[in-house]
Design a protein around this nucleic acid. Sequence first.
DNA 1: CACCAGGCTCCGA
DNA 2: TCGGAGCATGGT
Length: 257
Amino acid sequence: MNLRKTLLCGQCFRWKEIAPDVFCGTVGGRSVTLTQQDIPPLTKNPFWRQYFDMDTDYQTFNQTLANLHPNLREAAVCGAGIHILRQDPWEALCSFILSQNNNIPRIQGIISRLCGEDDTMPPCTKLQEGPAAHPFPRPEALAGLSVDALAPLRCGFRARYVLDAARKVTDGTVNLEELRTAPLAEARASLMQIVGVGPKVADCTLLYGLHRMEAFPMDVWMKRAMKQWFPGVNPADFGPAAGLAQQYIFDYARRHP
DNA sequence: CACCAGGCTCCGA
DNA sequence: TCGGAGCATGGT
């Protein structure tokens, strides 16, 4: 696993590079600062082993993708080392609602404020793991709030989307844990009951929050990228590596102006 | 000033 | 069912 690629490829928003190759993040109520060298010992810890998805065979996924198209082979080589993190489903849902029609630096800022971090707060510099000062807020904590209460987040029209998600997750309208094993189409439909959740956000939630690797977040940008750089390749060809392929394609397109 | 940012809702044909 | 404006906010 390549730590930099994995944390900076756009799948998560709570990791900061506080110095070259030094990353500080908050996951599941824990904060940690680490570098690439910390990964081997850290993966003895079941929690981090699971979060970084160390038990999935990415080698086989890479082989599958590389054989589909020459450009996809190149993309897979460049993207090798990216793992799809096993993020908290609610955090992923909420994060990708906030990501719509938005850019990554601002998404990070909004999520940082949502977690109660102050804009003037210095970056965390402690070098070992500890309890999080600012864990991601649970849906129950947000469900009762008003749009006005979220004004300090400056997330604009997305505020009512976040609140609708919080309410529907809290009252059981959407049962995130059940979506781990539900048929993909059903899981997608369930998430799209939430106002502000369309096909793209639903698939991002399934992929990053519920580790449904066969989910393929598709939008007009991705359609164009597929047609331009990977003609003749269909998302159906990716099988259980679809989510990983999408990540590789995203990175590939970024490197090809 | 216009345009864009990992989209979606809402409206009209 | 489809297309396109509008949406809050901040950066370039």
